[in-house]
Amino acid sequence: MNEHPHVPLLTLDTLWFQVAGTICNIACTHCFISCSPKNHSHEMLTLADVENRLAEAKALGVRDYYFTGGEPFMNRDLLPMLEATLKQGPATVLTNGMLLRKEVCGRLREMADRSDCSLDIRVSLDGFDRETHDAIRGPGVWDRVMIGLRNLAEAGINPVITVTEAADGVRTEQGRRRFLELIRAWGFSKPRLKILPLFRIGAEEKRTRAYEDWERLTTPVLTDHDAEVLQCSSSRMVTSKGVFVCPILIETPEARMGDTIGETLRPFQLRYGACHTCWVEGVSCRT
């Protein structure tokens, strides 16, 4: 059946790097790509991989760059990669916050100060406290993140705290306020918070449930205005296996669109449950 809409690539503004592959120092029970210390489905990117795609992105006029994994700080070349990136555009790193040592935070601050572009660090949390967070992320994680956040605060870096809806009640006004208060208490006087829905794929499929058949997009045609809301109309994702349509579908072979960015400048058919979540929730993985 060919009833699912195609989303055009309206503009290529954002390039993602799956910089740590699916390799992570923890194994969250809600991870949509089941990252773990042993998951080598996507390998780490090398500095040369990133530099090659940066050169291509520069010629295409890409606006901003995101680094994710797995845990990006497990990639030993992350800092030189960010340095190279910040010469041509703003960069954001999505991290679990466990490897934010003092020296690392100091270097991030130096890099941010030297560049004309913004550098953002996004730290993931999944609850208001140790108990709820560690239930998703594993024992001892909360305490290590708190050290990482302290190091960021001392370096004068104001992170964006990203919370998934696995944290009960975070979407409510009260939950949001509670989170903002927590972030203030950790030493960030200008608290920044982003809330993301869950994708029912990967580990999350086992934690809660898989997508049902009805959770698919069936509008035959999207207007440009509709398409604009979807991040696949303006971004692509580089992994060790090639360039994919978005950061979510990297374990879907059909979502691999080419070896280079240039090969992926075409529409994509929204056939997947995750596409339904993006559409219904208006999700953007961007900050």
């Binding site: 992105a57 890409v62 041509q88 572009c117």
Partner: peptide
């Protein structure tokens, strides 16, 4: 020029992007 409510900030509007928009 492409969107009435797009925010063009200095730190997130790098040259390659601005060049493309001009083109």
């Amino acid at each position: 020029p492409r969107k009435i409510n797009e925010f063009l900030w200095r730190s997130t509007s790098p040259e390659p992007f601005l060049n493309r928009i001009c083109d």
